[in-house]
Design a protein around this nucleic acid. Sequence first.
DNA 1: GCCGCCATTTTGTCCAAGACAAATTTGTTT
DNA 2: AAACAAATTTGTCTTGGACAAAATGGCGGC
Lengths: 310, 310
Amino acid sequence: MAAGQHHFQRVSIATVERETGLSKDTLRMWERRYGFPRPARDDNGERAYPPEQLEKLRLIRRFMDLGHRPGKIVAAPMHELSARMRLLDAASRGELAAAGGLHEVLRLLKAHRINEMRDHLAHLMMRQGLQRFLLDTVTPANEEVGRAWMRGEIAVYEEHLYSEQIQHLLRQAIGSSNNDGGAPRVLLTTLPGEEHQLGLLMAHAFLSIEGAHCISLGVQTPIFDIARASREQRADIIGLSFSQAMQARMACEGLGELRRLLDARIELWAGGLLWQRVRRRMPGVRTLGSLADIMPALTEWRGRRSGQAA
Amino acid sequence: MAAGQHHFQRVSIATVERETGLSKDTLRMWERRYGFPRPARDDNGERAYPPEQLEKLRLIRRFMDLGHRPGKIVAAPMHELSARMRLLDAASRGELAAAGGLHEVLRLLKAHRINEMRDHLAHLMMRQGLQRFLLDTVTPANEEVGRAWMRGEIAVYEEHLYSEQIQHLLRQAIGSSNNDGGAPRVLLTTLPGEEHQLGLLMAHAFLSIEGAHCISLGVQTPIFDIARASREQRADIIGLSFSQAMQARMACEGLGELRRLLDARIELWAGGLLWQRVRRRMPGVRTLGSLADIMPALTEWRGRRSGQAA
DNA sequence: GCCGCCATTTTGTCCAAGACAAATTTGTTT
DNA sequence: AAACAAATTTGTCTTGGACAAAATGGCGGC
């Protein structure tokens, strides 16, 4: 019977791509260069990744999202990576400390008491008002949930659950604040390849409070259609959201292409956590690394506008 | 000067993949087999697709979503494809006729009077009740918007706008109907690769009305996490939504893998428009081609459950 | 005429190994 | 310390071959 042939859930390269977000080309290239992953082969000679390697790839992905480079981590042994990640976790654990109702949110999430979590969040929103809620509760809570996920304290699906509840709250809030005829007119969406909605929704809520007229297209609008929509909806500003996970290259390429398609008088604001790790500035594009950056940008715009009008 | 070198916005293969949803491998294979697309090459010898070819590829994608096979259409000249698409459009145009407030919805959408459209939809929902609203208004309206898009009467971004407004309404409706402790417990999500939310949201709303306890994870949950969530949330049923655009192969592969990971007593329901064109049935998976199919499935489940209990 | 079964064609994905440009790091000079 | 140049790292693109899964078409039996 020996070690046995319990080939236990080996998966194809397409599955690994789907689950890790690493392209097939990249996976093959790492195998060539760093000797990892080194999948088995099925009867057909095709790569068949065992679950341990998939798990290590997921861990590597976390490091990469934190800005690490593959050369330094892909070949490293699993136990070393785990140890390093634990170290990072310990460091980030210190930061939490303050921040009001967050512990409670995390506690309820981990306990699977989702409805109570939602009620708790709703209560906070009522008490703080939408703006403070976004800046002081949702933003740090997102970070904390991300960290908890990195620490392995919560599962991916729990992060999804959390995200759904927040979206729920924000959509309800947005629904009730409706500023027709407000200025500026902001067209909100994400580029193809960026499927994360939460950042977009938070920006939408924030801008709505500030009296901007928001037109949201949801996620993943093709570039040509963004340009078309901006003309037909007479947008002053196009707001695009980019999550940490988005590939910087795709983002910059897409932004450049969009900028070329647009009239110069339309502003292009690129927001989201991506810009906290990607320094690169692009001509004709304003990058906003956090929600709080929206406020001064908006003030500036209004200053320019009233200056021109005068 | 000749034909000139106005290389006018030629795009990379990655961009074409992003915009059409056709994989790089497929694009290269079509080029080899059918002689189309035949992109120019940039200074670096890499494919550079002119906008006409991108446009034709988009049209081909529409045909494929309707069930046509590439061999028959990829090599066909553009004018023939356009003509055939116009014919199909004319045919579907007849079907509309009936259906109450739909014309109004489409009219407002095309006129960019989005807020009025939302108010109109909200009014219909109030008058009809959520269930009839979903079956008699939203479902046909989705189809009509899809057709209008195929006819070129509305832009992609207008479809996005429509979709956003519907989502808004449904989320508000779901928020107010909250059945803790209901049965069955249904875990709702989509597989990685399926980013369309609307179908999921409609299923969520429908199941909520019927008294099921819904737990939504949003879109694109990795398969292992779906399995984990179903255990930890003690789900009776996992409901997955698949849009027309989803690749059948990926869907079936993912479903098979998930089914293997699950306890046999957990049911797997696969819903969405995909199953109207994909016949293939899979063991241990119940396919639901439309919202209306949910009702009998639910009745059956409750019958089985009460039968076992007795 | 309709259904099930088998052979054939169609089609998408996978593979290998090479190439190169963009991004990042490192080293040097002002 | 900052700016510039050289070296390294890294992801994506290339070709052409191969093959399995899915769809189609033909055939025989009910």
